[in-house]
Design a binder for these strands. Structure first.
Lengths: 464, 464
DNA sequence: TAATTTGTGGGTCTACATTTG
DNA sequence: GCAAATGTAGACCCACAAATT
């Protein structure tokens, strides 16, 4: 997507003077919003500078600032001092990834919900929970953060990820997305800023947009987000938090190196950022000798929320995630939990607890590792030139593609060809990127042969 | 709580001039916040007028406005043109009702989770779901709004409440509070205003506070919120939505009469308010000849979200609620659902579905009616002078008490005496009230004899 | 009823920081 | 490395509306 290169001669956007009425700034913002929404202002377009528009409309330029601010709050545009104001990417399409509406003749390589082949073990756990005969207790209203024995299992699980907390500093939530929601609502205000990777998980981008929280992208390299650039950005503006997926960034598959973690921790501490450490894949590498990892939680415990999702790891139908938090977040997080969810399904929590206690959780992880390795090998056969993920057992790949077609066309054409994959534009936090990628899920095709079929369709598409 | 009657001579609040530094408005807001939080400014206190403070601090008065605005956004204070600016009620205590931390020797008459005696039927439903052998399907990631047969059951249930929608206009959520969260996030912006009764559900008050949504209390009478006052308020300011619990307001037990519903619907339509119709108890009276009720949803369908919670009705351990919505909310609501929850627990949804399909949902409702009637009769024996609820089978009572002690002392003293009940101050939306009440839950004592014990403790306490 | 008090909303001015050329 | 372009932030002024006296 080229930035409008005519710059401002003539003005890239001319509001209709006749529609302007007091209050001017809302009137202007409304026009801008509708022109963005109806498509006459495409993502990436540079808007006229505030002073120029003010001149044109015969207003003080700070009135334009106010109009732009309204749209900025809605995530429609963003501005950089010295450079200008631009229409945000994907303002019109929702980039949310839901797994819904897939045509039955299409192979799923978009969604990453994580190898459903071993749900049978979860079914078994369900049966054994039901047979134990204490369901009645679970069905009463109590223990909104989780029943004591459920929390104990959660803590045990977290310990294996290197996160050590007691039962007053952990709680059971309804899945990772729900945990993120509560975290953002509880600890941030509308208008706050959170640093993220340049590419990050689409549903987090959308959630931030919903809550009027601004994401500030920080560039990174093969070791993860660059700490020096984070430091720089923190000096420039008030950044309130940072969102990271250290063991396997979604979608880029980058794992943050230990030394980078230490550098980042330093900056996080210095600028008092609230760190949201979203670990969907930590369990895949924890316990592996060669991939020993330590959570950022252990480096800056007093500022970190550590999220361990069980949905991808164990079973996507179970909406369970564990959150570990420090004492200074305790009151706010629990307050947020009570007032947004009241509590998590006791039954789901119990089933996951059963899986942890009877050891099958580990069996599932082990089997998913095997599947991930197998699927990864297949992928490598088709795309040997694709840079391999820094993390082993990653459930998806980040495939560079030629920069020829408008991003959403690529998705559509591939869907017509019979596979669903997601384009890098869905994951982009702010600016339009110069490179393009596809996130290729290896875990949801349904079988290895379907995966293989899907990859061959993809390869053929990219070669023509 | 008396409004500070010294008015402003000397000023009720003097910020420390030496602490003022640029930017003044944040500096001032910070001082105000900390003085409210540390208790030196009590709820209800009238703050100095903006111009007076400005004079004192040698600033322009709109700079004070900005400082006040910051605190207003946080819900710490509120202002009325012509009258002044006041410290909000319960700024320091969380009024959230969670059911947690009840001392074991205390009888629960605070929480209203709703007669857990029939959870055995839910256990049965769980077993039969497990035996059916299609759990594997439920555990895969699909149908984020609910599986088709689950939605079909939901629609059937909603129909019995007089709400008619198709499967594209209903979705399954993780309980009523979660539905409210998604509704507020999806359809409102920070700073928006929602009209409510003068007393309303505490967790809704807290949720609104969390999301920076302002609640505007509208007075009512025995037929519910007064439509003329709503009209008046809508003319005065931009109100974006309205929150009602028509069949049984929590905590006041008032049922909105049919004619009042029609008047309210008229105002709601005229001012294009988004109506959140929260029906926890509709199922208790639906189907009863003498209490026929029609939902506001049927009067202004295009502007209404109808929430039917299953947690209180059927089983509080099941986090399931149904939401019915009109086409124009569809996109936003589903977008909100996907990005805050991803989806609801399929297992919980399936169990509730099973209960609806096998008829036991109705059996549970019928049995809870009996319990509610029985508990109500006991209550009447102890407190014959307490005005009876307009709704039959209400799970709690709204008991007027003498206006002698500071509100939260009453709760504490009663807890020491052996019962937990909640004081009306917890439910108050804005101003301090002149009358005081207790909300007395009849449904959670555990047994009728415990309830009776609790009521006798309460009676004794009130008589001394 | 008119005058006063008080809060709200919107537009303007100035200082300043960052990016770009 | 400086000047110009450009966005950001804070304070001020004025018009106005509602509540009080």
């Amino acid at each position: 997507m080229p930035i409008n290169s005519f710059d401002n001669f003539p003005m890239s956007w001319k509001p209709d003077k006749s529609l302007m009425k007091q209050p001017y700034f809302t009137s202007l913002a409304d026009q801008l919003e509708s022109d963005i929404k109806n498509g006459s202002l495409a993502p990436g377009t540079k808007l006229p500078p505030q002073r120029e528009l003010a001149d044109y409309l015969d207003l003080n330029f700070t009135t334009i600032t106010r109009a732009y601010n309204l749209c900025k709050k809605k995530g429609l545009i963003y501005g950089t001092t010295g450079r200008g104001t631009f229409v945000s990417p994907h303002v019109n399409e929702s980039i949310t990834i839901t797994g819904a509406d897939l045509s039955p003749r299409c192979i799923e390589m978009g969604m990453v919900s994580g190898f459903e082949q071993y749900n049978e073990l979860v079914v078994q756990a369900t049966k054994s929970v039901v047979e134990k005969g204490y369901l009645n207790n679970l069905y009463e209203y109590s223990h909104p953060t989780g029943h004591p024995h459920q929390l104990a299992a959660a803590i045990r699980w977290l310990e294996q990820m290197g996160v050590h907390v007691d039962s007053n500093h952990a709680a059971i939530f309804s899945g990772a997305q729900n945990t993120l929601t509560v975290a953002l609502i509880s600890l941030f205000e509308p208008g706050d800023k959170i640093a993220t990777d340049e590419y990050t998980y689409s549903n987090f981008i959308e959630l931030a947009k919903l809550l009027n929280i601004q994401l500030v992208p920080i560039s990174g390299d093969q070791n993860g987000m660059r700490a020096d650039l984070l430091e720089l950005q923190c000096k420039q503006m008030k950044i309130n938090g940072i969102y990271l997926m250290p063991s396997c960034a979604n979608p880029t598959t980058i794992q943050i190196s230990l030394s980078r973690k230490q550098e980042l921790a330093e900056v996080i501490r210095r600028h008092k950022l609230i760190l949201i450490e979203d670990e969907i894949f930590a369990s895949m590498i924890s316990g592996l000798k060669n991939y020993e990892t330590i959570p950022l939680f252990s480096l800056v415990p007093e500022q970190t929320l550590y999220i361990s999702s069980m949905s991808k790891t164990l079973c996507s139908g179970m909406r369970i995630a564990y959150l570990a938090f420090a004492e200074n977040f305790r009151k706010k997080i629990l307050h947020g939990l009570f007032n947004t969810n009241i509590k998590t399904s006791s039954l789901d929590a119990e089933i996951i607890t059963e899986l942890i206690l009877n050891g099958n959780a580990y069996a599932i992880v082990e089997k998913k590792r095997e599947l991930a390795a197998k699927a990864g090998a297949i992928f490598k056969r088709y795309f040997p030139e694709c840079p391999p993920p820094t993390t082993p057992y990653c459930f998806y790949r980040w495939l560079p593609i030629p920069n020829t077609k408008p991003s959403f066309h690529v998705e559509k054409e591939l869907e017509q060809a019979g596979i669903r994959v997601y384009h890098s534009d869905r994951f982009i936090v702010r600016n339009q990127a110069d490179k393009q990628f596809l996130r290729v899920s290896l875990s949801d095709a349904g079988s290895m042969s379907k995966l293989e079929k899907g990859l061959s369709i993809l390869k053929e598409y990219l070669e023509t």
